[in-house]
Design a protein around this nucleic acid. Structure first.
Lengths: 185, 185
DNA sequence: GTTGAAGTTAGTACCAGGTTCTAATATTAA
DNA sequence: TTAATATTAGAACCTGGTACTAACTTCAAC
């Protein structure tokens, strides 16, 4: 309830910021905030092409629901396209802008790591596996939008220890390599 | 629209799974799916304590709104609680159930890796840094709910290369250690 | 000061996806 | 067959809107 009234322009500029910052705000709350009628808020939303509360909430929910399912819940980061158990496997991952550092647009290392690690896990024929040791090297920065191709190869199996090499490339350029020792439990 | 009718019990068991898998489904769609009336669906929701569609969507949105800000957008995974640039840093991360493998409830390696890597990056006094090489070891599995404390130490600086050791512990038990070589650009 | 356009407010009818309640009808088990 | 359980139906109400019409305020320009 800011007491002084802003001009239409000022209000609409602030509007955008507020909505971005808090998509969960109702028209009524906004009308109190700006000290204008609900109808004015709705005209503003119309002018600024901002969907109603419920649609905004749904957008946030859906956008993030996907994300949880890619780096959170699914058992593999990237898409498995070939697999020969205990021998080799290939997965691909389309990088996008949510994976990057804002400043540099370079894909954050842990996405690449997650891709490699989960492929290494998929490729070994064990019910449950844990990464024991990993030795990795990033060679070239990856930019948003580039398609990563990961190839994993099982090099040695000793008891419940699996030695897996993973190489990730963009086109023909290797951007990452890592050696993993996985332990099945 | 499964043609055969299930018993109340069977229906309610399936109900839970469906809602978990797709929180965006309306009562009407559910009623068609189960071949019962909308009222029955509502009684089921009441019995199972499942909130209405809009509340479910809001929950997903809110839960993930936070998460995007931790593993998606912010530059550091975990909470930075102490920092001496170019020397050392400490961060903490409360693990939760979305970070785990479903089967084992063990925290997925890349969360731990992301925590370590981002702390290593935070601790060096460079505008932008990339991980060049990392040498890591997971020692003990981490379970959901455990609080991770990461300590990073800069051991050497040579030109634009920074050598950082990161140790992560749960209480007094070390669960992870890693050596990172970061390159500033 | 008057006028006209832009900006704001008010009100009505309607919608989805519900809640809460009462009451009637089906199904099933004893 | 009957009692209990499960299911369906319907009415009134709710939130947070859309879409539309109409009126009222401001304020700048003449």
């Amino acid at each position: 309830m800011s007491t002084k009234k802003l001009s239409k322009k000022e209000r609409q500029e602030k509007f955008l910021k507020i909505i971005e910052q808090d998509p969960f705000i109702t028209d009524e709350e906004l009308s109190e905030l700006f000290n204008v009628s609900v109808q004015t808020i709705r005209l503003d939303r119309l002018a600024l092409n901002i969907p109603e509360l419920r649609e905004r909430v749904k957008e946030v929910a859906k956008a993030n629901y996907k994300k949880v399912r890619t780096i959170g819940e699914t058992e593999i980061v990237g898409e498995l396209i070939d697999l020969e158990l205990n021998k080799r496997g290939i997965s691909i991952l389309e990088t996008d802008s949510i994976m990057v550092f804002k400043k540099t647009k370079i894909v954050r290392g842990h996405y690449i790591f997650a891709m490699a690690e989960s492929l290494a896990m998929a490729v070994i024929d064990a019910d449950v596996a844990l990464t024991g040791v990993a030795n990795i090297k990033y060679r070239v920065p990856v930019l948003a939008g580039q398609k990563l191709v990961a190839k994993a190869e099982v090099t040695k199996i000793r008891g419940n220890k699996y030695f897996v090499h993973v190489k990730i490339a963009v086109k023909d350029e290797q951007v990452f390599r890592g050696k993993f020792i996985l332990v099945s439990i």
